[in-house]
């Protein structure tokens, strides 16, 4: 079981299968988390099912010295970075072996050893903290870039605009990653923005931007690699918008009764996992038997994670009073 709980940053090589199996790991993890909620009374959770290509594509482009700030839909970013599914699930269940000793739950998981810092579940919170993390990088002579994941909902917060403006003025090394998933909690983006694109909001602040198909993991990785190169070369922040879709509801359990079924169906046809699987089958990089074996292997990993998490004890009640002050 110990091998399950490593804290090593995943280093992605050139093999496209790594991108696929990481996406599959995330998908199965999140569906298991939702299942545990539905069937075993686990606390509610926010998933990013359907957005795996964005998480994996961006994280695969990062170096080991780069840092990540994420939000309430963080499982993909954490797992792509190498987080143990066992410890992550233990955290979601509020157990002692979780990344935060059970005090976070699923909503604000940080894993400092993986460079995933200051996760905030306040929409837009990560945007306000990213400038400070990047200022430390800049002033302390560290080379790592700060990747800040947020959604179209956060882009409608004032902090988005304050953050972009300050990062541009101070030339902070931030890769802003907008996962435009069309949903702002229970409200569709078209009700809250007149533009379809968040990337268009970067330019007035003097920030270069690009938009990418957020459901194509290789396209995301390529775009993120280019964006990171631009940040390192020009010493300026960059905004990458990934156009994707949240296939599950806002917060489990959620019957998605408010979702246009036609729109949902059309995005299901663009599922990032199916897309990558079809591509790799087509290219002969993997065959169906290989895919099936991979599925079984990942399902076993998730089963083991669930066993580990459920077996992990709750924190001692005395923990209520620890970690308040340094």
């Amino acid at each position: 079981m110990l091998a399950e709980v490593n804290v090593t940053i995943r280093r992605f090589g050139a093999d496209p299968l790594e991108l696929l199996n990481t996406m599959m790991l995330i998908r199965m993890y999140e569906e298991r988390a939702a299942l545990l909620q539905r069937e075993s009374g686990a606390p509610g959770t926010c998933t990013a099912v359907g957005q795996e290509a964005t998480a994996v594509g961006v994280v695969a482009a990062l170096g080991v010295d780069d840092l990540i700030l994420t939000n309430h839909r963080s499982a993909g970013h954490l797992l792509a970075r190498g987080a143990s599914p066992s410890r992550l699930l233990a955290e979601a269940l509020g157990r002692r072996d979780g990344y935060c000793g059970g005090k976070s739950g699923s909503l604000h998981v940080s894993a400092r050893d993986l460079g995933v810092v200051l996760t905030s579940t306040i929409v837009g919170g990560e945007l306000a903290l990213a400038t400070g993390v990047a200022l430390s990088q800049q002033m302390l002579g560290r080379t790592g870039v700060v990747a800040c994941f947020f959604g179209d909902g956060a882009a409608c917060e004032g902090r988005f605009h304050e953050s972009l403006n300050l990062a541009a003025v101070w030339r902070l090394p931030i890769l802003y990653v907008c996962e435009n998933n069309e949903w702002q909690a229970f409200v569709h983006r078209r009700e809250t923005m007149l533009t379809d694109s968040v990337a268009a909001w970067a330019q007035p602040y003097g920030i270069d931007s690009a938009t990418v198909d957020g459901n194509d993991v290789e396209a995301v990785r390529a775009a993120a690699t280019e964006a990171l190169a631009s940040i390192r070369k020009n010493g300026r922040p960059f905004l990458l918008e990934a156009q994707t879709y949240r296939l599950r509801g806002h917060f489990e359990p959620d019957d998605q009764g408010y979702v246009d079924q036609q729109e949902l169906a059309s995005w299901r046809l663009r599922d990032p996992l199916s897309k990558m699987q079809a591509r790799l089958l087509d290219q002969g990089i993997i065959d169906q038997a290989g895919l099936d074996a991979l599925s079984v292997e990942i399902a076993q990993c998730i089963d083991a994670a669930a066993v580990f998490a459920i077996a992990s004890p709750y924190p001692a009640v005395a923990e209520l009073h620890t970690d308040i002050f340094a």
Binding site: L67, L118, G125, A128, T131, G132, L135, L140, N165
Partner: peptide, 23 residues
């Protein structure tokens, strides 16, 4: 000097404090 934007001033301080500076 910073913009007249208390939220991002404080957020920047919080992020910087967690990662090695003492703002």
């Amino acid at each position: 000097n910073t913009p007249l934007a208390e939220g991002i001033i404080a957020g920047t301080a919080v992020g910087a404090a967690a990662t090695g500076l003492r703002p």
